[in-house]
Design a protein around this nucleic acid. Sequence first.
DNA 1: GTTCAGTTTAAACGTGCGTTTAAAATAGCT
DNA 2: AGCTATTTTAAACGCACGTTTAAACTGAAC
Lengths: 206, 206
Amino acid sequence: MSTKDKILDAAEELFAVKGFNGTSLREITSQAEVNLAAVNYHFGSKKELIKAVMSRYMNELAPNLEKALLAVYEKEQIDLKEVFTAFVQPLLSLNQFRENGTSNFLQLLGRGYTDSQGFLRWFLTTQYPNVIAYFVQAVQKAYPELTPEDMFWRLHFTMGTIVFTMSSSDALLDIAESDFEKQLEIEHLIEQVIPYIAAGVAAPLS
Amino acid sequence: MSTKDKILDAAEELFAVKGFNGTSLREITSQAEVNLAAVNYHFGSKKELIKAVMSRYMNELAPNLEKALLAVYEKEQIDLKEVFTAFVQPLLSLNQFRENGTSNFLQLLGRGYTDSQGFLRWFLTTQYPNVIAYFVQAVQKAYPELTPEDMFWRLHFTMGTIVFTMSSSDALLDIAESDFEKQLEIEHLIEQVIPYIAAGVAAPLS
DNA sequence: GTTCAGTTTAAACGTGCGTTTAAAATAGCT
DNA sequence: AGCTATTTTAAACGCACGTTTAAACTGAAC
């Protein structure tokens, strides 16, 4: 495996667990068993490394997500839950792309939103605008009474739910397992969250 | 104003905007116009300062919150929305306690959850267990069909929504204001979020 | 006026960070 | 084999951080 890939793999894992700010290049290169300077040689800077880690996933995920969301949009009648369910398969298929792919990616997403003040928001909206556009389209068609302003807020609330849940998903799953004494996986978490956010977005207008 | 209070005020403001990790003691003491060493003299360490900032709010908030939640619990019939609405007055009254109190506190809450890996969760559950207990009690009475496991997940999702929304509330309100061309306040955000989380927690069981 | 606990101050300490440097090692090509 | 471009390496750089030190200052008590 190339030095570049070794760095990407180690960085992905550590970033997911400890956040971007909380992970040093020394930890990454130590876990990857490469020289410290290799990060700056291959990626230029820590910030570029973060982008590279995210891009590896987004380039895999975005086409699948766009396809799934468009498919939902084409339907005559859309249930809001279908819109959110459209995310499930593309996300779960990340497990075939990389080991622990789904969980790692979602955690990275969470880290990116809460760590480096808005950088990831910029990255996603500028680099992958179609995903967001198709998603909004589908929600609008499923729930046309929703005003743009209500939509704005509810989608941000939804983003918050996802992002927070996923960035602390390891801890949550641990607590839940010890509390309820059964083994839980990320799929279980996804199953739980979809009805919640679908109901939230579909809440009656005041 | 005492040095201690000057430090607490400056720290609160900076922590809310830039997070705990993102704020250095030098920034705090510079804004407070006190000597750098004063933090360690008066508080012992940065971690203790963080606790002190949070405690100042929680000691004010916790009694009001407990009272409001107990009042809801005493009712014969509880609508879930009432449980969440019980938070509103105690939270808004923080604005009389300190300028920008509501917004600062909610942002701090968000920072605390996503910054320092679980420290705030420990702090809240051990130092203010009644708030959480009364809240769970009320939800349970409002929606008795909810199993403990479903309750567990939905309350964490709710926490995520609140915490994420509030930790980025300044940015969100800015975007919303420029998009919809009207002036928005934190109260507006609270109005929006309550139907969302109430519907989420009340979602039908699958 | 002296004493003394409490407070403030400037300076320094040690540590860990991201990044840079320049030499050494490696791999590809003729 | 010899040259060249790429990659790896050890070491150091400069900086910012939280914390500690010890001296200077303050204000009330006697």
